Computed example of a mutant assay.
Amino acid sequence: MKLYFLVFDIYGMGGTVRTVLNVTNYLAQAGYDVEIISVFRYRQEPFFAIDPRITINVLHDMVNRKNRKDKSPIIEKLSKMKSRLIHPDDEAIHFFSLLTDLKMYKYLKTITSGILITTRPSFNIFASKYRNKAVRIIGQEHLNFSIYPDRLKKAIIKNYIHLDYLATLTDEDTKDYKRLLEGRDHKVKVRKITNSIPKLQGVISSLEYKTIIAAGRLVPQKGFDLLIEAFKIVHEKYPDWKLKIFGYGRDKDFLMGLIEENKLYNHVLLMGPTQHIDIELSKASIYALSSRFEGFGMVIVEAMQCGVPVVSFDCPMGPSEIISHNEDGLLIEDGNVEEFAKGLIELMGNEEKRKYFAKNGLINVKRYEIDQIGQIWKETIDEVFQSV
């Protein structure tokens, strides 16, 4: 039986793309027949490596749109009409249209067997409503239930019972979804399957660099504004250290403004996106996670894999499940900028503590390696296959 992964844009960057490819590349190498259905395509070449054994089907190709033959007035009109089938509280709703609805619906109806793995709440809901009955669905949750708007929460509770499996990232999420979905007419199985890390391409950091690193989309969720405020305090004590922030997003100009306002333009650097965050981590001594909320916090795991200690806000939900406070990193009171700065200063001034955290982190991180998480995926997939 075939595996289908429904994603927003497999050619893009970001945590979901990276984790989906970690899993699909592993499964393809293990001999599974894997197809990725990418609703959109906004890049000519994929940002991350895709195993050549994986089939890619793009439904709405924005790169080659100029050369498409479907530029009829009806197509153009549909592309400007609001989506009716994607939940309106999807954070990317403005990318979808009635045209993409029709393309998704039509393609979904061509899948008559196998397992469909969906990767965001609106896709989980969409598939639960419109899949062919013989198709099994594993829905993935990359964020915690508590952060969703009420309207989306209601839709999740109503529709997730029609999934076969729901894959969650943390123990807390697993408990929440079991509580929400237990006792309903349909018995969806909820299972924790954390994100995974691929094989290390860089080297273990020497922890001698005067560099703090952070990475993620430049959006309010990631709290880079809070990190810049904290680094302003840090800079007064350690003016020879730098902060490098990797990623791109709509807050770039806002963050640049903060950097200039605080006269940190020679010390806080917006580096743009990188395909190899592990190589950049190998040239840093501290990783800073300043998010207001996280689904998991894959970059924490990647930092530990590279022997880089982490200072993180204890935000909901993921960091406290990965980091053991004062053993392999520091958990700081959620949103407390002054305490975050103190945590950075503590590690910046204590190389021995950095090395102690790094040593423990390298042990901790083994549970997230793709060979471990990939095996859980194989067990889950095989269990679903056997139930068909």
Rank of each mutant, 00 (worst) to 15 (best):
D33C: 14
F313L: 03
V39A: 09
E346N: 14
T174Q: 12
F296Q: 02
W377I: 02
K366M: 09
I74M: 15
N22C: 08
E302K: 04
G374S: 06
S38G: 08
I332C: 11
L218T: 01
D90N: 13
A30I: 10
Y177P: 10
S122N: 09
V310Q: 04
N266V: 04
D334C: 09
M348G: 14
Q140R: 08
A134N: 15
D371V: 08
L255H: 02
E260L: 12
L281M: 13
K242Y: 08
F5L: 09
I86R: 07
R184C: 10
N336T: 09
G335K: 10
G349F: 10
N22L: 06
I193N: 01
L269H: 07
K69T: 01
I50G: 11
Y11G: 07
I259W: 04
E338Q: 15
G295Y: 02
A28T: 11
F40S: 08
H235S: 15
I50C: 12
N144H: 14
I259V: 08
R53K: 15
E208Y: 06
A155I: 02
D225N: 09
G14L: 07
V308H: 04
S38P: 13
I137H: 11
I322R: 11
L99F: 15
G12E: 14
G139M: 07
G216S: 01
I277F: 15
L102Q: 14
E261V: 01
I363K: 13
E351P: 03
Q275R: 15
G295V: 03
D278E: 11
K283Y: 08
F293R: 02
F126Y: 12
K355C: 05
K283V: 03
L163M: 06
E172W: 02
H94M: 04
L258T: 00
E379V: 09
F224E: 01
P309D: 13
N262M: 12
H235M: 10
I111H: 13
G335N: 10
G318Q: 01
D70K: 04
L102S: 12
M304G: 07
G223A: 04
D51C: 11
M13S: 13
T24M: 12
R367W: 05
Y238P: 10
S291F: 00
L347Q: 03
Q140P: 01
V310K: 02
D90I: 00
D9L: 07
Y32F: 15
V310S: 05
N336H: 11
Y160I: 00
V301F: 11
F123V: 05
Y165Q: 12
K222G: 03
I370C: 03
A215R: 01
N336R: 05
N195G: 01
L243T: 08
M13R: 08
V384T: 09
T194E: 08
V299K: 01
A92R: 14
F224Q: 01
V311G: 07
S312T: 00
I74C: 07
